[in-house]
Design a protein around this nucleic acid. Structure first.
Lengths: 342, 342
DNA sequence: GTGAAAGCGCTAACAT
DNA sequence: ATGTTAGCGCTTTCAC
């Protein structure tokens, strides 16, 4: 017969005929306890369906094994992918995600205020802005923060990101190899370094080929399928002969919207009439309908790096600040770019 | 100057010149405390950047304000949508999600074992199987479980789902109105009631129109884009004249894969050569490239219902079991079905 | 190797 | 209305 309520370590101790602290030791790896005693405790625990209460233990150990993840844009498959990846990596280390969602482009300060109520071991922030003040509050309390793909110059928090400028350059080169002459781009949130860097790398590489930024048509879209579609329409809904022959979208989700408008609304053939490229390599980019050429972010490596920066091992220690790790992305050639003319 | 470590209620009490319990009361709504005292406490808390530690308080209140959400299929946009919706609804009530991911089709038992280490207020399970034994363990401990779209007959846990059979019928009727004669379907995990019900409703309605199940071609795909593509290929890669003129996919993500194979690999025109319908109404179904006719699940209502069944108000009380709430879905007509011939 | 005892930060009686 | 006190379930010295 089972107790109607959770068994505690005292219940187990009583059944096993040992002290309560022996029960605690039985469930800890590095405790000195006789193998025979541990076995007896574990058996008693099994009978009572006892599992140590991590919430209770965290009170004294000061580690909850919980990491807060603040996601700013669940509508972008890339961040879903990242979230999934973070979850797997964390679970493999016996930790869990406490999830906080923030409206697209919104401030994470409100979410952070809630985060601080829980004694989380660290905070991972994806695609959301966090004020300096809030960052300091968290860091001062000994709660490390790592920004995922959202570097803020002069910001105190550590940051892991794809080398966005480098990736933008990769796309520019691929376009040039494909024989593109007239360029256009769809940019994202002007305040986000992600967008800025992806644009800068692209423009810089084009400048090396003799193209002035003024010659590159551009529209700013908000980073959704619909945003990409609207931006493409604004950019290209005019006389066909004025069209660019290459369109760079600073992320895949907007590229999908742009492609659909191009083909379905404007009657363009891709890549014959216009070449298209994105950034991120979300799963949909590989769909047969799109076959989008893009830059793949090294998500797994980025997640591994981010978790490393959270410094779980040396809890409570001084947190290094202003770290910025940029990992190179990789060009994934698909069907929206012309193969280099041989 | 700030303390290098988190301030506690004692620190605040000392600064405000009150007792520690007064601090606790100041942060609780329904406590009797003089407005003047509360103000003084709150001001002291502000100075020390104090926030009550929910982990600590949950030890005595036995409520963590944390709800475990186990997600079995992050690759299916529908469950991402549901997760997002759950997060928003929960946050609005001051609660958070502790996220657990499980491999597609895998058992949630292992995740549940981890869930039980935390004192969560409830568990929401989407797209994953949970053994009876594990369900009982959770329920016996007073941790309520609600299955989201994964009804298991005879299972003890409460369940909220879309009326999948009804939805399947809706699709069958729409196909019939569109003049379809020869039917095919791509089913999902044979063990999942979601797939079974969607198939049953479809087949039943077709039977009423005089079609035997044996006349309906079918292939089983695993519920991904690739799975849908592979199933479509297996089902239709033969002489064109043998083709069905209507293809029902039991979820949208497989429908996208099937459509792409149909158009790009098999040269079919949709809906002229073959009509297609899905189920879920994921965001991609509305993309211009797909314009997929489907059944929209009432996600918001389902989430509201699921949270209601978690019974946050009456914590620790007897949990009703074997509840099954099926909410009707709604047909969303788009371009992959022919309009009824007038 | 094991038990006794002291907290971790908080809430909730219980007095006053 | 406020302070005092006793825990919530656990880990961790500290003796033995």
């Amino acid at each position: 017969m089972k107790p109607s309520h959770r068994a505690t370590s005292f219940d187990v101790a009583a059944l096993a005929g040992v002290s309560q602290s022996a029960v605690s030791r039985a469930f800890s790896q590095q405790s000195s306890i006789a193998a025979e005693t541990r076995a007896r405790v574990l058996e008693a625990a099994r009978q009572l369906d006892y599992v140590p209460n991590r919430i209770a233990s965290s009170l004294i150990t000061r580690r909850t094994n919980i990491v807060a993840v603040i996601v700013g844009d669940m509508a972008n498959p890339f961040y879903v992918q990242a979230l999934h990846c973070i979850g797997c990596a964390l679970q493999a280390r016996g930790r869990q995600i406490l999830l906080f969602t923030v409206d697209r482009g919104g401030s994470a300060d409100e979410a952070m205020r809630r985060v601080l109520q829980y004694q989380v071991d660290g905070v991972l922030l994806t695609s959301a802005q966090l004020s300096m003040r809030m960052t300091s509050r968290s860091l001062d309390r000994g709660v490390p923060i790592v920004l995922f793909n959202r570097y803020v110059p002069g910001h105190d928090a550590a940051c892991v990101r794809c080398d966005n400028a480098h990736g933008g350059g990769l796309i520019a080169e691929a376009f040039l190899r494909g024989g593109a002459r007239r360029f256009a781009m769809i940019t994202g949130d002007p305040g986000a370094t992600t967008s800025q860097d992806r644009v800068r790398g692209f423009v810089t590489r084009l400048a090396e080929a003799g193209l002035a930024r003024g010659d590159i048509a551009e529209a700013c879209g908000h980073s959704t399928y619909e945003g990409g579609a609207a931006a493409a329409l604004a950019l290209l809904d005019r006389q066909r002969r004025e069209w660019p022959d290459a369109l760079y979208c600073i992320n895949d989700i907007m590229a999908l919207g742009a492609m659909d408008v191009l083909r379905m609304r404007l009657g363009a053939a891709i890549p014959q009439d216009i070449q298209v490229a994105g950034f991120d390599d979300i799963p949909q980019a590989a769909h047969l309908s799109y076959q989008l050429t893009t830059v793949a972010q090294p998500v797994e490596a980025m997640v591994a790096e981010a978790l490393a920066l959270l410094h779980f091992d040396r809890a409570g220690q001084r947190i290094e600040r202003a770290i910025d790790r940029a990992l190179p992305g990789q060009l994934v050639m698909r069907a929206t770019l012309r193969a280099p003319s041989a």
